[in-house]
Design a protein around this nucleic acid. Structure first.
Lengths: 218, 218
DNA sequence: AAATATTTTTAGACTAATCTAAAAATATAT
DNA sequence: ATATATTTTTAGATTAGTCTAAAAATATTT
């Protein structure tokens, strides 16, 4: 039997290894899980014994194929619940993450497959992230970060990196949502801020915003 | 913060005290929770410290008003999720209990109030049990158990005591569901079995079935 | 290549929830 | 009313997950 804590570590390792390097180091996991390195060492030993991870002392950790399967399944559940919360229960996109963190651990294949069908097999969650299907397959959308977009080009907003309530509320208040059309007007070399044009307005966003907003060229 | 285990003990104590006596004894809780009496003693001490229960050594336990509030809220969540599973996700009434046991512990007022609204404020769950409203009020239906029904009278099936999959499947296979009209034909004194008439059939049910089926006179 | 800094692991302790076995309290029977 | 049985509590141990502090390994700097 896999515990809730094990699931959360597996998910954290998956996310850390999908943005970048393949082996994940102890401190990175500790900071993602808001815990101490010594606790992480204990847990990755356990994950290794249970065959969810490959681990050699001092060398970092990678997920086994079984570990990846578990991670993707949790992500599938998380994102399906997020769609449910937004589309059926009137949650806004900045409110869903915390509740979905809990719902994602409910163990019932029938529950999640029926939920998938009830929602008509959505392929993206409310933040633009792809939802794995029952077999764990999901599309990798070709997206770039606003910080690397080119001046003069027009893009569609397709996702966010940071899903914190703060960031999402900032986007709401500036009328940026999934699907919003954005034209890059000017990049300011001094502070890396970017001037963008929306449908009815022009705004300047800071570098930290520009690094967390995903776009697709149109 | 209240833990999942504390919630489950509180729920068990609530159910044990609502069918009958007001103070609940240690062994009864142990058997309901499938654990040992010594574990129960430890937990009721803790519940008592946290003001969810009143407890004097060797004298059994009762819930405080705060304990009751917690219990009723868990029951509300459990039953609302059961309605959701049956009405929206194609679960049958014998499949819902186990999943609802987990969903009932998700902590989000918005989640449960929006779910309530989404389901159009149902007042009974799929087993005929009343669903408490946001303030914790629920109707107590006047019901009797089939074992105590009178020969010659006609009743409507309004609920079950045992919600195990086995029992519910038995009822399904004999075409008994909530709302089914039942006339009591004969009580057999030898084994306390009862012959009942349904719409298109007459069947004999055992005493253990008769004790778990709730009826309302019509 | 030594010295220093950083990262990771180990050792030992803590908490929540559980267990077994024994002791204490209460209830029942003769 | 005493003996016996049952129930409940205590004492001490166990497991999962965490922590602190120290030790060991690795990485970086000079």
């Amino acid at each position: 039997m896999i515990t809730l804590t094990e699931e959360n570590y597996i998910k954290a390792i998956y996310h850390l290894s999908s943005n970048g390097e393949k082996t994940v180091n102890t401190n990175a996991i500790a900071s993602a899980m808001q815990t101490k390195a010594s606790s992480v060492t204990d847990m990755i030993k356990k994950l290794s014994e249970k065959n969810y991870a490959d681990y050699k002392k001092y060398q970092g950790v990678t997920l086994t194929s079984e570990g990846k399967r578990v991670a993707i399944n949790i992500i599938r559940k998380h994102r399906l619940w997020e769609v449910f919360l937004v589309e059926k229960l009137n949650f806004s996109w900045d409110e869903v993450h915390e509740v979905a963190e809990h719902l994602e651990h409910i163990k019932s294949d029938k529950l999640i497959d029926e939920l998938d069908a009830f929602l008509e097999f959505p392929t993206y969650d409310p933040h633009g992230d792809p939802i794995p299907d029952k077999e764990g397959n999901f599309k990798h959308i070709e997206k770039i970060v606003l910080a690397k977009a080119e001046v003069g080009s027009t893009y569609k907003c397709v996702g966010v990196d940071d899903t914190s309530s703060k960031f999402l509320k900032y986007l709401d208040s500036n009328h940026i949502a999934l699907g919003t059309i954005i034209t890059v007007k000017h990049k300011e070399p001094f502070d890396n801020s970017i001037k963008i044009a929306l449908e009815h307005s022009e705004i300047v966003v800071s570098q930290s915003v520009a690094k967390n907003l995903y776009l697709k060229k149109i």
